[in-house]
Design a protein around this nucleic acid. Structure first.
Lengths: 206, 206
DNA sequence: AGAATGCCATGACAAATGTCACATCCCCGA
DNA sequence: TCGGGGATGTGACATTTGTCATGGCATTCT
């Protein structure tokens, strides 16, 4: 398995190279020091996997990945980083990066590398813990703190399904006027103007 | 590495077992035929990884995973399935499942298994392709196919921000009546009744 | 018991919304 | 050049929506 490493931290790059080559299964074709090296080195060696840091002096690993993937959509890229930043992960995945691991996990990088070379996607242990949160990434809102009661919240949910006041009233066995009053109160508590804003708000902060 | 396999397809389970044991790195402690076997077998053998099918006669792999993870939150579970269903993936990840692969990818299961045993998360090749879409999970909708034009879509976007007709008109340098007419047209094309339903719809199928 | 409180409802009203039937205006093809 | 068709606009109208004032009941507190 051929690998190219990009990392502006010489020490880290060399350590990685040693570990990988010690396995006897990996050949580190080249190491670069900046994101700008990614594309030329990739084209020259066509490695199975490109292993790159994210934070680098000139061009970062994310940008480098984007460029490389634009030119070679099937390139397998494994991002290595010290930081565990949600934004980075989401962006990287959108580009088509195949793996995302923390440097502190470097002892366990070999299996991840293999999986990536097969086209699978791998997330390091620490990233794994964040995944569920990332998938349903939705800000939360404490309705109770604004004085919105459970009953009111039921109404709001129906508003967010597109029901009219009359329909909501029927559904909950209330008077239509009552529904209007309730919603009016909710609107005031949340500083909103009309039911549409309410629906949008509710869908955003479920 | 100790592994327990759960699959109601005897043939598949045996094939898997052969492949894994042929590597010399995996010991298949036991194989079960139903999700109900997962917990007892896990407790008995405490495997590094539990490999389980999703669709099974009695209790499915998802439910089994949920139960197992409730009892042993650190259990490493790798789901195997024939079906590539978004819903399943999201659910599984929420429970804390560490891997999700298609059966057709069984040749490449060993590296994935290793990665999972280290606490990493792995997605099979076919799943990988869906990941970016899953992250900003949003069903798509072909507005053009319903005759909704770009200009109309601009209006809809503003509705979904909670603007009133008057505000939209100002923003786009249109008459308020024009805005109403446009939106009225859109509502008809999409079979919706009012702006709230429109906003909800738009936020769902961006 | 009387007062206070919460929950549900009504009626009245202004504003916003959705629908419809027309006007313009402008461009483009016959 | 004419005429059709699209984009834009207006006015009228019924409906829905949001607000407010108010009242009836229960339950609870004093």
């Amino acid at each position: 398995m051929k690998v190219v490493i990009i990392d502006d931290d010489r020490l880290a790059a060399d350590a990685l190279k040693s570990i990988l080559e010690a396995s006897g299964e990996v050949e580190v074709c080249a190491t670069g020091e900046d994101g700008a090296d990614a594309l030329p080195l990739y084209e020259r060696y066509l490695p199975d996997v490109l292993l790159t840091d994210i934070r680098m002096k000139n061009i970062g690993g994310l940008e480098a990945s984007e460029r490389l993937l634009r030119a070679y959509p099937d390139a397998k890229i494994l991002l290595l980083t010290t930081f565990n930043d949600d934004e980075y992960i989401v962006k990287a995945l959108k580009f088509g990066v195949k793996g995302y691991m923390l440097k502190q996990d470097y002892q366990n990088i070999l299996p991840a590398l293999k999986a990536v070379s097969l086209g699978q996607t791998v997330f390091g242990t620490q990233i794994t813990e964040k995944l569920p949160h990332l998938l349903q990434r939705r800000e939360t809102f404490d309705y109770a703190a604004r004085g919105v009661t459970e009953k009111e919240l039921d109404l709001v949910a129906l508003v967010a399904e597109g029901l009219s006041n009359r329909e909501i009233a029927e559904r909950l066995f209330l008077g239509e006027g009552t529904v209007r009053n309730y919603l009016s109160g909710v609107l005031e508590k949340l500083n909103l103007r009309d039911r549409t804003q309410l629906a949008v708000f509710y869908l955003k902060y479920r």
